[in-house]
Amino acid sequence: MSPLPASPFHGKNHNHQKCIAEALATAEALCQAQGQRFTAIRRRVFEIVVQQHKPIGAYEVLESLQQEGRTAPPTVYRALDFLQQMGLVHRIASLNAYVGCAHPGQPHDGQFLICEGCKTLAELQVAEISGAIEQGALASGFKPHRHTVEILGLCPGCRNRSTP
């Protein structure tokens, strides 16, 4: 079984500014390596998404940009589509929202732990989960192209707050 970190959720010692800076640098390098333009609007949309550390809807991204005096809805959706195609963000279907990818540049299927309390999200990359889905699908004669697993529950912080 793949080793898991103690907790994939960010703790109180998380350096948020460093995290964002590293995500932006990684995104820029991936786009450059693939011959894609990381335009100002793509960069800003990505920055808004990764700043959250929780899923954010396209309308919330649009609101942030409009407060800055920028853009129209189609531009936001095009930027989000581009970021998704580049593997920089994931779409969380159950929330109709987007989250920055914890493993950019690595082909993988999404496995997400979504806290129902504080709405934070952690991305996992457990090969056994993907393997079980592939095996089950193939045993049924189905060839999956991509899959996303969304698991709802409580993060360690919310669990500790709800425990008397």
Rank of each mutant, 00 (worst) to 15 (best):
K143V: 13
R91K: 14
C19W: 05
A25M: 02
V50F: 11
S130R: 11
P73E: 12
E116T: 15
R43H: 15
R146C: 11
N96F: 05
L83Y: 07
P107L: 02
F82G: 02
C101I: 01
G11D: 10
Q66C: 01
A58H: 10
K12R: 14
T26E: 10
H147Y: 15
A79Y: 00
I151G: 06
E116A: 13
F142K: 04
F9N: 04
H53R: 14
E63I: 12
P74N: 12
L95E: 08
V45A: 13
Q36I: 06
G141F: 12
P144L: 13
A102G: 08
Q17I: 01
I133C: 06
P5C: 01
C158G: 05
M86N: 03
T39C: 10
H16C: 03
P73V: 14
H53P: 00
F142H: 08
A72S: 08
C31I: 03
G136L: 10
A23I: 01
I114P: 05
A6I: 13
E134C: 07
A97L: 01
C158H: 05
K54H: 15
F112P: 03
A25S: 11
Q84I: 06
G157N: 14
I48V: 15
T163Y: 12
L30M: 09
I56L: 10
A6T: 14
A122K: 02
S2F: 13
T163P: 03
G141I: 12
R146G: 11
Q66D: 06
F142S: 06
A29R: 11
